[in-house]
């Protein structure tokens, strides 16, 4: 009883902080676009964690689907039709198709091998974006398009003009995506995923079709990551081949670990810390890569349970 109450208080607190973030982030040295970036990358990290933390499957190639989302929305607006919602849907659809195909190839692999194959497959999309110069802009990225106002028939909402409007647009989609994931995790399907994480062999003996469940979890995770990718491109009015690369995948994983993989909100905290820190370090020094690398090493050695893990342990003792 007490723990559910605590959880409700924590939920309320998190939503209150998210809803008011543009108004207080200035006091801690941030700006509204940074707040949007935190929310977008938090969505990516939380989607990854659906697979990583709640199904126990180690994917290191989620940047590919993030990037497909980003290029999907950019290319739709640039070449197909001038509509932001259509672009988001196309980005998510293409990512879902790619994830469905690759998912069938990899569901039988486990742990390090799963990680290795997901990284390697991720590179295919990087090479496509990098090499297909005429369409994707190659190394320079996809520019020459911009986020278009939402057209509701009765009136238009210009989400791109004001960073504040865009923040709430992002937050609304974040809420929908995160809500769906939370509901899924509470459903029998989500409980089955937890069972697979805890003991795959036992789950298999109970007659659970493990491969199908992992495939579904992978697909859900990839689709929500691609939503984050579309929002990231809309935020920047730009799609970067770097969005697809393996170092981006590593960033998502470290966000999830830093916040706490075993917790639903953990990756949000991890993403917030990571984004703010990266923003700060890259403005201070040219050797930011060393610092980010060192950051990875230190987290693994001294902080493997993440922020939420640490808080829980404190609360328990």
């Amino acid at each position: 009883m007490n723990s559910t109450l605590n959880r409700q208080i924590a939920n309320a607190l998190i939503w209150a902080l998210l809803l008011t973030m543009p108004y207080w982030i200035g006091f801690v040295g941030g700006y509204t676009s940074l707040a949007s970036r935190v929310v977008v990358l938090a969505l990516a990290a939380m989607s990854l964690n659906f697979l990583l933390g709640f199904t126990g499957v180690l994917s290191f190639g989620h940047a590919a689907y993030f990037g497909i989302g980003a290029y999907g929305v950019g290319m739709t607006i640039k070449y197909l039709a001038p509509s932001t919602p259509l672009g988001i849907l196309v980005g998510m659809g293409v990512a879902a198709a790619a994830a469905a195909i690759i998912g069938t190839l990899i569901v039988r692999l486990r742990s390090v091998y799963f990680a290795m194959v997901t990284i390697a497959f991720g590179q295919v999309f990087y090479f496509i974006a990098y090499r297909w110069n005429a369409v994707t802009g190659g190394d320079d990225g996809l520019s020459g398009w911009r986020t278009l106002p939402l057209d509701f028939g009765i009136g238009k909402l210009d989400i791109a003009g004001q960073p504040l409007t865009f923040y709430y647009f992002v937050l609304a989609l974040f809420a929908v995506a995160v809500g769906i994931m939370a509901l899924l995790l509470r459903s029998p399907f989500g409980r089955t995923l937890l069972a697979i994480r805890e003991n795959e062999r036992r789950a298999r003996f109970l007659g659970i079709p493990v491969e199908q469940h992992i495939w579904m979890s992978w697909l859900i995770s990839c689709v929500f990551v691609s939503l984050a990718g579309t929002l990231y491109a809309l935020l920047n009015n730009f799609a970067d081949p770097h969005d697809l690369r393996w170092d981006q995948s590593g960033d998502f994983v470290i966000m999830a670990v830093l916040g706490g993989m075993r917790s639903f909100w953990g990756p949000l905290i991890g993403a917030a810390i990571f984004v703010v820190l990266q923003d700060y370090i890259s403005s201070q020094t040219e050797n930011w890569m060393s610092f980010i690398g060192l950051f990875f090493v230190l987290i693994v050695l001294f902080f493997p349970r993440g922020v939420v893990g640490l808080l829980r342990r404190k609360a328990a003792s």
Binding site: V253, V257, M289, G293, L294, F296, V297, P304
Partner: peptide, 16 residues
Amino acid sequence: RDPLYSLLLTFGLAFM
């Protein structure tokens, strides 16, 4: 430990 951690550590090392 979970292979995730060695992956992340060597990932950070690669950056450094």
